[in-house]
């Protein structure tokens, strides 16, 4: 149940991100839409790893080693998402760097001003 809720939240965030990227003309807003889409994907991946009534795969007083395989959630999606977050940060940094350069060339952040590569 709870994973369906989280999964739907992630998918809704992806949709909002796609919508934002397609409708807005400001490059910074497009970058924000892209980040929203990325965050939605992360939430989606984490939700897929949830096992019914599971808990975080960290052994402590609440979860001893013997019962962990029966009670822990899937650690692999979580480990993948750590990777994905870092790559998302990297892509965002590069996009923002290019946004700065584009602003320098036209003194505007509106994507309508950049018609050279438009077909």
């Amino acid at each position: 149940m709870i994973s369906t809720v989280v999964l739907s939240t992630g998918l809704a965030l992806i949709l909002i991100g796609v919508w934002g990227m397609l409708t807005h003309r400001n490059i910074l807003r497009i970058v924000i839409g892209f980040s929203l889409m990325g965050t939605g994907t992360h939430i989606f991946i984490v939700a897929i790893g949830y096992v019914a009534n599971g808990t975080a795969p960290i052994m402590d007083r609440a979860l001893n080693v013997a019962e962990a395989p029966a009670r822990a959630v899937d650690p692999i999606p979580s480990a993948l998402v750590v990777t994905a977050i870092v790559i998302g940060l990297a892509v965002t940094a590069i996009m923002l760097a290019y946004a700065i350069r584009l602003y320098d060339s036209k003194k505007t952040l509106s994507i309508d001003a950049f018609t050279e590569s438009k077909w």
């Binding site: 149940m1 709870i2 994973s3 369906t4 999964l7 790893g49 949830y50 096992v51 019914a52 795969p57 962990a68 395989p69 029966a70 822990a72 899937d74 650690p75 692999i76």
Partner: peptide, 15 residues
């Protein structure tokens, strides 16, 4: 989407 009831074999092995 059906919530998973148990770990996949690979995940179980990791845990």
């Amino acid at each position: 989407y059906a919530e998973r009831q148990s770990l996949l074999p690979l995940a179980k092995r990791y845990v």
